[in-house]
């Protein structure tokens, strides 16, 4: 969970402080609303799923601030599905701008496996691709 981020161990309620150099850390800027595991830690990458998993077509989104170019980008969190969870490999739980389930487009507790091949619906990990600039 969130506690795995080095800066969050000291204070799980501390302000989100993004960095732009380590994609496997929970405070990497694109992971500002990730819930689950970083796919880069289990055979995938920042934008691709590990072998054997199925890429969902649906997603939740968040506006994440990139500290390097000082721009905010819309991240579309898509799940890689059809395998058991990658327990112990880069589990993160960030909730920047995360909204309750009645606003599902910003809700990150939902298993966003809809649209994955073979109707795969078990959760393995999440990728953090950019889909556009945010205001």
């Amino acid at each position: 969970g969130r506690a795995e981020a080095a800066d969050a161990v000291a204070n799980p309620r501390g302000k989100w402080t993004p960095q732009d150099h380590d994609v496997q850390a929970c405070n990497y800027w694109r992971h500002c609303s990730i819930d689950g595991n970083i796919c880069d830690c289990s055979g995938g990458s920042l934008t691709s799923c590990p072998p054997g998993t199925k890429l969902a077509s649906s997603s939740w989104v968040a506006s994440c601030y990139n500290p390097t170019d000082k721009q905010s980008y819309l991240i579309s969190y898509r799940d890689c599905c059809g395998r058991n969870v990658t327990t112990g490999r880069c589990g993160c739980f960030n909730t920047e701008g995360e909204l309750p389930v009645y606003r599902p487009e910003y809700g990150n507790d939902i298993i966003w496996c809809f649209g994955a091949e073979d109707d795969a619906m078990s959760y393995h990990c999440t990728i953090s691709p950019i889909v556009g600039k945010a205001g």
Binding site: R2, R13, K15, W16, T95
Partner: peptide, 9 residues
């Protein structure tokens, strides 16, 4: 006491 957007911590 918490920062904004840490509502699940």
């Amino acid at each position: 006491q918490r920062a904004k957007w840490t509502h699940k911590s």
